[in-house]
Design a protein around this nucleic acid. Structure first.
Lengths: 191, 191
DNA sequence: CACAATACTTGCGGTTCCGAACTATGTCTG
DNA sequence: CAGACATAGTTCGGAACCGCAAGTATTGTG
């Protein structure tokens, strides 16, 4: 499990490779460590608490979001879970088939769909969440309480910043050249 | 793009839902914000710099790892990129088909394969990386230089901790009950 | 009532992803 | 040196995933 190279070694190799290139090391280290940490943590959680309930990461996140907020419209669930609506349709279907989630029509607006946990889903989350939280404590082991707070707060600022300014930034970046189409994806029907 | 709920609102909802349950909020906020930030940052980078070269996140990470380290055995590439070796086989195939990556056999040990960038791959990375780094600066905008350092350092500690102790922790957690098989995955040929 | 806007689903084409089974190669040991 | 074991990589099954286009249904609006 332990890597061939530690993060420190990687950062040194980057220094060697990019010694001549002007670049912003601190921000690079911060961003790449966010992803390293996210991957490592996710893998740990999947292979400890989630695996025993045969839940995928995404499945769990969706359940968690709905659990926290109670009934929730699907579009918001997708957004909170960080996945697309199309993906949510499939994931929700899987969770429904396991009897953990149910979908309801909206009483007044017929276009909306609302997700809610079934009693089984509630029970599962009530059982699972404490275990999940225990592992969050474990992975945060090397942080002081005040450090964990400060970490969370810095990340919160980054997310808020991206939510507020990311769209505009991307627009500015690509100027007037439209986004190139993806290599994959459905084609226009005809021409 | 901006969410229906801010992180602060979510944390409040959690408080309401879990008011009675004893839990460790700071660690929970830290961990969940790591994933929120990772998702938001990844989406921003995919839709700005990566999209224009039709690279996926994982494809880019693999190229990046090989670029930094030069020739590298596939098992280490997978580990550094945070993906399984099975996944790497497919990703490498894709990158090879685009002429960005090449694979070489190991001269003395016939089991090993080594990855290396093609000249086109080198060129692409030399062009792409500065742009990528610019966006890393953008997403880190709300952090002071010292904060970015401290953020990176805390995350580094978490990763190191998981690399050192994660395996044992998972073993302890599941005791003598073996890991249940995944719902998906290859089945034994016969019985 | 025509028409636009909204919300979700479906389907497509491609990628990614895991992990167990499988293949090939290397190494150890009696 | 043969058989056992170990290691590296590939294949494969099932699922997740995106972005987009198109389809369905519903709601809002002039």
């Amino acid at each position: 499990m332990s890597g061939h190279h530690t993060i420190a070694e990687t950062e040194k190799a980057v220094q060697a490779k990019l010694g001549a290139v002007p670049l912003h090391r601190e921000q690079m280290a911060a961003v790449s460590n966010i992803h390293r940490a996210a991957t490592a943590i996710r893998q740990h959680l999947e292979n400890s608490v989630l695996r025993t309930s045969d839940l995928t990461w995404t499945g769990f996140v969706v359940l968690w979001v709905v659990w926290i907020w109670g009934e929730m419209e699907t579009r918001y669930v997708a957004e909170e879970a960080g996945i697309s609506k199309g993906t949510l349709t499939g994931v929700a279907k899987t969770l429904q088939s396991r009897g953990l989630l149910e979908r309801l029509g909206h009483p007044t607006d017929g276009r909306l769909a609302v997700l809610r946990l079934t009693p089984e889903g509630e029970e599962l989350m009530a059982d699972l969440f404490p275990k999940f939280n225990e592992e969050e404590v474990f992975v945060s082991g090397p942080l002081e309480s005040s450090e964990a707070q400060s970490l969370a707060e810095m990340l919160r600022r980054m997310v808020t910043h991206l939510e507020a300014n990311g769209e505009q930034r991307r627009l500015d970046l690509r100027g007037d050249t439209p986004l190139p189409p993806r290599r994959s994806g459905r084609r226009a029907k005809h021409g």
